Amino acid sequence: MHIEQFRNYCITKKGVTEHFPFDDVTLVFKVMNKMFALSGLNSWEQNEAKVNLKCDPEKALELRSEYDSINPGWHMNKKHWNTLILNNDVSDKIAFELIDHSYELIVKGLTKKLREELKSM
């Protein structure tokens, strides 16, 4: 996966915006102002692309035991976030599924008002 594929996949989801809230190298994607994916752009330049994604805690543990390239979220709540090292043993297909999972978790946790607003976009 390339940075453009990651960015395009995230940004085309309904209600998603991109930001650099921490510094000028950490790209953050939010749905309805809630973060669901982030990546340090410098990791892509160093050929070790890393992405942090929200994950159901039980699923997170399963994924970490199944894949060497999925670890507890770097600088995140390690119970609810995973860091994926892309282009190793995590296929693009799995990465896209995990992006979807992260997005869906955030949407599910939105208030009813925000979910209705998202539906109407």
Score class of each variant (00 low, 15 high):
Asn8Asp: 12
Cys10Gln: 04
Glu45Val: 03
Thr111Glu: 12
Leu27Pro: 03
Lys78Gln: 11
Asp92Gln: 09
Val28Met: 05
Met76Phe: 09
Met32Glu: 15
Lys34Gln: 12
His80Asn: 15
Gln46Pro: 08
Ser69Pro: 08
Glu48Cys: 09
Lys93Thr: 14
Leu38Arg: 02
Ile11Ala: 10
Glu66Leu: 10
Glu45Gly: 12
Asp100Lys: 02
Glu62Thr: 05
Asp68Gln: 14
Thr12Leu: 08
Lys79Val: 14
Tyr103Cys: 06
Phe20Thr: 03
Met1Gly: 02
Ala37His: 01
Lys108Ala: 14
Lys113Gly: 04
Pro72Lys: 12
Glu117Ser: 07
Ser65Val: 00
Leu27Lys: 03
Met32Val: 12
Val25Pro: 00
Thr17Phe: 03
Leu38Pro: 01
His80Gln: 12
Ile94Lys: 00
Lys59Ser: 10
Phe22Ala: 08
Glu18Gly: 08
Ala49Gly: 13
Arg64Lys: 14
Phe6Gly: 01
Glu58Pro: 14
Ser102Val: 05
Lys34Arg: 15
Phe29Pro: 10
Glu18Phe: 09
Gly15Tyr: 05
Tyr67His: 07
Cys10Met: 07
Glu116Met: 14
Ile70Cys: 06
Cys10Thr: 07
Met32Arg: 15
Asp23Leu: 10
Arg7Cys: 05
Asn8Tyr: 07
Leu61Gly: 04
Lys112Ala: 10
Arg115Thr: 08
Val107Gly: 14
Phe36Met: 01
Met32Ile: 00
Lys78Ser: 15
Trp44Cys: 06
Tyr103Lys: 00
Ala49Trp: 04
Leu63Tyr: 03
Met121Pro: 00
Ala60Cys: 10
Val90Tyr: 03
Leu110Cys: 12
Arg64Cys: 10
Thr111Asp: 13
Val16Pro: 04
Ile94Cys: 01
Leu38Met: 12
Pro21Cys: 07
Gln46Trp: 06
Glu4Ala: 02
Val107Tyr: 07
His80Leu: 14
Trp44Thr: 02
Leu63Ala: 05
Ile85Glu: 00
Leu61Phe: 00
Lys93Glu: 15
Val16Glu: 08
Leu84Thr: 01
